[in-house]
Simulated scan of single mutants.
Amino acid sequence: MWLSWREATQAALYGETGFFLRNSPAQHFRTSVHASPLFAGAVSRLLHEVDLALGEPDPLDVVDLGAGRAELLCGLAALAPGGLADRLRLTAVELAPRPEGLPAEIGWRRDVPQGITGLVIANEWLDNVPVDLVELTGQGPRLVLVDPVSGEQRLGGPPSAADLDWLARWWPLTGVGDRAEVGAPRDAAWAEVVRNMSRGVAVAVDYAHLRGARPAGGTLTGYRDGRQVRPVPDGATDITAHVALDACAAAAPGRSFLTTQRVALGALGVVSAPPSAQLAATDPAAYLRELASAGEAAELLDEHGLGGFGWLTQFVATFPKLPYRMTQ
């Protein structure tokens, strides 16, 4: 049976026996949330800035899209000072069942709530929104089809007119054999999230690329058991592709800007400088703690790894002065 990559990925990730309904993401890939509690600390500082900009609303929403086992929300709850903690309304959006033992104050639902006032975080969420894969041939663009059991691929018919329009605007194919992922479903998903907000800030953090620097061969790949593998939409493999965050930004209402995780986290207080040698002599235990923290920070800020992720920040009916800014 031959399917488009979007159809095959939808079934493989979100079908009745799909990858995200049967697996904990942390078992298969490492996100910034799992890499270090410093990430939750940075998001906590961002939340504080958003709270002040909104006039300290009650409740103050924090919605985590693709929340996994709500590790980030648990971290934010632990870091919030008393006055803020009393106003927080924490919501995990995830298709998998609610984990056992999750604190009762963290809500759990399958869809994005409406009327959000506060902060939305989509950390490595958009890359798992299924998309079609297109290849340029001598006869024009053609959909790439896949056998969901073997992962074998072959070419099908031409993409829809809407997809051709998206490619022309956001990912022009110039050489025969070039491939692109059609990001229109991600644009629509992000726009819906933003429209569900009343006031606040939405942040998408993901593998990303921008128009003018799209990879000629596309980025579709798989992850299983912590390793990058050949993409096979069999339900046992995470299927992912980098995100055209500039297209997502243009599709959603409101002001937005793009930067990198390295810039954003650095401005939010994540520092990778090692502790002084003098501390090792005066307080060895503190030196080891700070050394471990510096190592974790270095991983979060690595421009060739997590630090190279794109950060899309979208404002809804408010324009808080955030500590990080757009970079070219």
Rank of each mutant, 00 (worst) to 15 (best):
A85C: 06
A184F: 02
A77G: 13
K321W: 04
H28M: 04
H304N: 11
T117E: 13
A80M: 06
D246W: 01
H34A: 15
E296L: 06
V229D: 03
L3E: 13
E296R: 15
L65Q: 12
A298T: 09
L143K: 04
V134Y: 12
V193L: 03
G305V: 00
N128F: 03
L73W: 04
E135S: 01
H48W: 12
E7L: 02
A122N: 08
A8C: 05
G200C: 02
R6W: 00
F319N: 15
E7C: 00
N196K: 07
L79E: 15
E299M: 14
M326L: 03
A8G: 04
D178N: 12
P130L: 06
T137H: 06
G218T: 12
V205W: 13
G226Y: 00
V182W: 03
V50Y: 08
W108H: 13
M326D: 14
V205D: 02
L79A: 15
R154H: 07
D283R: 05
K321V: 09
L145G: 08
S293D: 03
T137R: 08
W190Q: 09
I121L: 15
E100S: 13
R6Y: 00
W166R: 05
G156W: 12
L3I: 01
A168Y: 08
G41E: 15
F19V: 05
E181A: 03
T260H: 03
Q278I: 07
A92M: 12
T221C: 04
S150K: 09
A264G: 02
I106H: 04
N128Q: 03
V193E: 13
S276V: 06
L65N: 07
R142Q: 14
A77I: 01
L3P: 05
G18K: 11
L173Y: 14
V205F: 13
A251Q: 03
V270H: 05
R98S: 09
A40L: 05
V134L: 10
P159K: 08
V146F: 05
A188N: 04
A80H: 12
E192Y: 00
L73E: 06
D163V: 00
G235N: 10
A285P: 01
P37I: 07
M197N: 03
E135K: 02
A281N: 08
H304G: 15
Q328W: 11
Q328I: 03
S276I: 04
D178M: 00
A252Y: 05
E303I: 10
G115R: 10
G75N: 08
F19E: 11
R142H: 15
M197V: 03
G156S: 11
D111K: 11
E296D: 15
T174F: 06
